[in-house]
Simulated assay, not measured.
Amino acid sequence: MIGTILKLLDTLKNGINFYKDSKKSLFSNYLEPSMKDFQTVHENYLLTFKEYLELLMNSEIPLNKNHPVLNKIRNDSLFSEDLRNKVFSYYDYSNKDSFSNFNNSIIRYFQSSIKVPFFDSAPYLHSPNSARIDLYGGLINIISDEGIVDKSEKAIEQTRYIVSELQANYRKVLDNYNSLKNELIM
């Protein structure tokens, strides 16, 4: 009888260890690499949006459809698509409820925060990339709006707003990452 109880306790201990190991494996194989790739995307956004601000603030060229910032946005979108797609490649990894907050916060990070009307140049921007789409569309709207007197100042204001939205959404992703990390490895 004591031998059976000891075997049962050993089986329970092995089951608990397996459960802990599989949670650590989810952290190592899914959560940690997806967060690392997400941080790379976020850092790329911050770097490029800083460059957009500098172009807008320091350019002697008036804000118009030929302004170099518009071409830079299109090129940055094209050459960073792989970074964004890599983040989304992790999304379907787990349908577990514990991952839903983390996954949804990443999706919200890439969703549009500013509603801009459709504009002809949208096909040049590659999704998921709403921050650049928002900026590009917003700049086109500013350029087209005859009622805006200081177009450069309005463009700078819009760029800063989008960066602040990215930072707020990054914080939500980070909070969900830390919560899920604690759940998986603690």
Score class of each variant (00 low, 15 high):
residue 108 R to E: 08
residue 98 S to P: 00
residue 47 L to T: 13
residue 114 I to Y: 14
residue 116 V to R: 08
residue 3 G to R: 15
residue 166 L to G: 04
residue 58 N to H: 12
residue 77 S to G: 14
residue 46 L to S: 13
residue 152 S to D: 06
residue 3 G to N: 13
residue 87 V to D: 04
residue 175 D to N: 13
residue 65 K to A: 10
residue 144 S to L: 08
residue 99 F to D: 01
residue 157 E to H: 06
residue 82 D to S: 15
residue 3 G to A: 12
residue 186 M to G: 15
residue 103 N to Y: 06
residue 33 P to S: 02
residue 13 K to Y: 12
residue 144 S to A: 13
residue 43 E to C: 01
residue 80 S to M: 12
residue 148 I to R: 04
residue 151 K to W: 04
residue 184 L to P: 01
residue 115 K to R: 08
residue 168 A to P: 00
residue 127 S to W: 03
residue 118 F to K: 09
residue 2 I to D: 09
residue 183 E to P: 00
residue 179 S to R: 08
residue 148 I to M: 04
residue 131 A to S: 15
residue 7 K to Y: 09
residue 186 M to D: 12
residue 175 D to Q: 12
residue 22 S to K: 12
residue 127 S to A: 10
residue 72 K to I: 01
residue 74 R to M: 09
residue 25 S to Q: 09
residue 119 F to Q: 08
residue 68 P to K: 07
residue 47 L to M: 13
residue 113 S to V: 13
residue 43 E to T: 06
residue 30 Y to M: 03
residue 61 I to D: 11
residue 55 L to P: 01
residue 101 N to I: 03
residue 114 I to R: 06
residue 13 K to T: 14
residue 95 N to D: 11
residue 102 F to L: 02
residue 56 L to I: 10
residue 153 E to Y: 09
residue 19 Y to E: 15
residue 40 T to F: 09
residue 178 N to I: 03
residue 161 Y to Q: 12
residue 48 T to F: 10
residue 57 M to G: 00
residue 152 S to C: 05
residue 132 R to P: 00
residue 104 N to Q: 05
residue 91 Y to I: 00
residue 33 P to H: 00
residue 185 I to Q: 04
residue 179 S to L: 10
residue 166 L to S: 07
residue 10 D to K: 15
residue 104 N to G: 02
residue 121 S to T: 08
residue 93 Y to C: 00
residue 99 F to N: 00
residue 15 G to M: 06
residue 123 P to D: 04
residue 183 E to C: 01
residue 153 E to F: 09
residue 36 K to Y: 14
residue 98 S to I: 05
residue 23 K to D: 03
residue 139 L to C: 10
residue 123 P to E: 03
residue 176 N to I: 01
residue 128 P to T: 04
residue 37 D to A: 01
residue 159 T to I: 07
residue 31 L to V: 02
residue 162 I to M: 10
residue 18 F to K: 15
residue 19 Y to G: 12
residue 177 Y to W: 07
residue 170 Y to N: 10
residue 61 I to T: 13
residue 130 S to Q: 14
residue 145 D to I: 00
residue 48 T to E: 13
residue 68 P to L: 08
residue 114 I to A: 05
residue 138 G to E: 04
residue 7 K to N: 12
residue 53 L to N: 14
residue 41 V to S: 04
residue 96 K to N: 07
residue 55 L to A: 08
residue 143 I to D: 07
residue 80 S to V: 03
residue 158 Q to P: 00
residue 96 K to D: 09
residue 70 L to M: 10
residue 49 F to W: 11
residue 99 F to T: 03
residue 169 N to M: 07
residue 110 F to V: 02
residue 151 K to G: 06
residue 117 P to T: 01
residue 118 F to V: 05
residue 90 Y to W: 07
residue 155 A to G: 06
residue 8 L to F: 14
residue 10 D to T: 09
residue 68 P to R: 07
residue 120 D to N: 12
residue 154 K to R: 14
residue 20 K to I: 08
residue 163 V to I: 15
residue 165 E to D: 12
residue 30 Y to E: 01
residue 146 E to Y: 11
